[in-house]
């Protein structure tokens, strides 16, 4: 019998990537089902509870939970035990394994998590009219906020998720605990850095406005002015985005190296 390994040998094979999906299918199926269930609940809640006063708060909580589930999604590859030895011996090239992990985590999981809430947000105005208090995913993407913020909003969870993946692939003991601590740590450091800067800038803006005796602004004006004033600080954002990009690249390279070296 000629197998895929004899046919493809050293060359890259999508078929082997597919075989990895099959090999991981029981765990992937479970995770995708649970995540999909949560995202369907969030979407249904948005659509069915439109008369409920706390609708947006609960919807926000549900989608935040989904975001964290997404960040910690690499934990599924721990599979309830130390399966690293079996997985490291699986005859698949490191690049094929890397593509499997990346396609699942960066394409498959976001689709499962966000498809339903996005569809719900898209149909919401047609069913119930616009809701001024509601700022969903789609609205965030379209809001008049500087694109630097949007990049950072995507990069921070991505960096956290890749940190989690690296821990799952490379750490030898207590993988779950270390992955969770490291992931939360990374997210915390980045969030604290952005928050500290934002608070400082808000304070300075208000302080300067007070000194200049400017006319009081409306809430919306204030937010817009503030966001654009800090977006104008290109050095800060360049440094932050550069750091995040470097971190994401380093984590990806380290994950690939862990797959390549196969060291126990």
């Amino acid at each position: 019998m000629t197998t895929i390994n004899q046919q493809c040998g050293r060359s890259f094979s999508w078929e082997r990537v597919g075989m990895l999906y099959k090999f991981n299918s029981p765990w992937i199926r479970k995770q995708a089902s649970v995540y999909l269930l949560f995202s369907v609940i969030a979407a249904l809640f948005l659509l069915l509870a439109h008369n409920f006063s706390g609708q947006m708060v609960v919807y926000g909580i549900l989608t935040t939970v989904i975001s964290y589930m997404l960040i910690f999604s690499p934990l599924i590859f721990i599979k309830g035990g130390d399966s690293r030895m079996v997985e490291q011996m699986v005859p698949v090239s490191p690049l094929e394994k890397f593509i499997f992990y990346m396609s699942y985590l960066l394409v498959g999981m976001p689709l499962v998590c966000y498809a339903c809430p996005l569809i719900a947000e898209a149909v919401y105005p047609y069913l119930f009219g616009s809701n001024d208090e509601f700022v969903g995913y789609a609205d965030v993407a379209c809001l008049n906020i500087p694109s630097e913020f949007k990049v950072i909003n995507v990069m921070i969870p991505l960096a956290a998720m890749l940190s989690c993946l690296y821990c799952v692939l490379a750490v030898r003991t207590n993988r779950i605990v270390k992955a969770v601590i490291w992931t939360i740590g990374v997210q915390l450091v980045m969030t604290v850095a952005v928050t500290a800067y934002t608070v400082k800038e808000a304070f300075m803006l208000g302080y300067n406005a007070g000194l200049n005796g400017d006319e009081p602004m409306s809430k919306d004006e204030m937010v817009s002015t503030f966001l654009h004033s800090i977006a104008g600080d290109s050095v800060f954002f360049m440094v932050l985005v550069a750091l995040l990009v470097v971190y994401v690249v380093v984590m990806s390279c380290l994950s690939y190296r862990a797959l390549y070296r196969r060291n126990l």
């Binding site: 390994n5 004899q6 050293r10 005859p91 090239s93 196969r262």
Partner: peptide
């Protein structure tokens, strides 16, 4: 033995 070629990896198991 450090080769990561799938064809060779498929010949060894521990």
């Amino acid at each position: 033995s450090t080769s990561v070629n799938p064809e060779e990896l498929g010949h060894v198991f521990l």
